[in-house]
Simulated scan of single mutants.
Amino acid sequence: MKLATIRHAGSTTAALVVGDAFQPLPAGNLSDLLGMPAWKQIVSEAASEHPGLAAVPASDVEILNPVPTPAKVICCGLNYSDHILEMGRDLPAYPTLFAKFADTLTDPDAQIVADESVDLDWEAELAVVVGTTLQNAREDEAAAAIAGYTVANDISMRDWQRRTLQWLQGKAFDRTTPLGPVMVTADEINPEAGLEVICTLNGTEVQRGNTKTLVFSAAKLLSYISTFTILRPGDVVLTGTPGGVGMGMNPPLFLKDGDELITEIPGIGTLRNIVRTRVTADL
């Protein structure tokens, strides 16, 4: 099943995707829905008992970031072997992790406004949404706790990222990480079997990777993270980006005002984002 957060008639709601329409669910957004212990039952009943009942046409809604209020957003910095090698690093024994904030996330078609960075880069990613509380979880327990998957682009301010050895300031600008457009439930999709992760810049493909080449699977990441911090329903984990980022090109290529980024994972959906920046000189 596909779940979303939509705005319709001036209010937001969690919704079940029914064909080309959205059936409202009894929660203000998907984050709130996942916080309900019976969320799976609520969705199942909506899908089986009242399919399409009171559904709203897609033309009448605005699709928002599906999970707007995660308590934690944790990202894996290097997880595809091709991207690791293009960055001049060895394959890791442990995942390279950093955190974002909920304020970093934005809607699937939002403009990316970055007036403080000249080296603005793209990172197409599969994002995992947690559906059950996890602490010191085994890998099989972590796999069972996944609510679903969505699409992300970890837009990165490389000039800020290079200022220190810590990545945070180059990764956590407000409203620069689009997420969505929907969350596909874990029973319908299997990243370990292989999902294509694709990014195009102004119509030219710059990234194409496959999740079956991840060094650390979604379940492995959640299990590992849960050993040092509790994960709760609605938390988000970004699994890393494949090769083809702008910083890895020769010469490096960075985003400029008016550029269009399209990030796609077939079977989940597509992000469409325009970049807006006024910066033209080094900081």
Rank of each mutant, 00 (worst) to 15 (best):
H83F: 09
Y149Q: 02
T229S: 11
L25D: 06
L283F: 15
T96Y: 09
D235L: 02
V197T: 01
D60Y: 10
A71R: 14
A143C: 13
D103W: 08
T211I: 04
M87E: 12
V182L: 00
T96R: 01
D109Y: 11
L97G: 03
R7I: 03
A110H: 02
L179Y: 05
I146M: 08
T263Q: 03
P191M: 09
G52F: 01
I262P: 02
T132I: 10
P24I: 08
G248T: 11
V17Y: 03
A145Q: 07
G88H: 09
R278G: 13
D259W: 06
A38W: 12
A124P: 01
A55G: 07
L214Y: 03
L78E: 02
V56L: 13
T204I: 13
E196Y: 09
L231K: 04
R138K: 15
P233F: 02
I112H: 01
V182W: 05
L3P: 05
D119F: 05
E192W: 05
A15S: 12
N65Y: 05
S44W: 11
A145L: 05
Y94A: 13
R278T: 15
A137C: 13
T164I: 09
F101T: 13
G170Y: 01
P95A: 09
V237Q: 03
P178Q: 05
L85P: 01
G180V: 02
N250A: 14
G170K: 01
D32R: 08
P66H: 07
H83Q: 14
W39E: 00
I42T: 13
P26A: 12
R163H: 13
D174K: 15
L238A: 00
L97P: 00
D82W: 07
I265L: 11
V17D: 06
S48N: 15
L134T: 04
T133C: 14
A71V: 12
A114L: 14
T213R: 12
A99Q: 06
S81A: 15
V237H: 04
Q161A: 02
A114S: 14
V279I: 15
R162M: 13
K40W: 04
A54L: 15
R232P: 01
L120H: 04
S11K: 14
K100F: 10
T185H: 01
L30S: 03
P252T: 08
D159P: 00
M87K: 12
M36N: 15
R278F: 10
S44A: 15
P251N: 08
E205F: 06
G243F: 00
P252H: 09
P252W: 00
A142Q: 03
T204F: 11
Q111T: 14
H8R: 10
Q161W: 08
S156W: 03
T104F: 02
K2N: 11
G180M: 02
A193N: 14
I112K: 04
W39V: 07
K72T: 10
H8M: 11
T177G: 00
A219E: 02
T263L: 10
I42E: 00
L165I: 13
Q207V: 04
D259F: 07
L238W: 04
C199S: 12
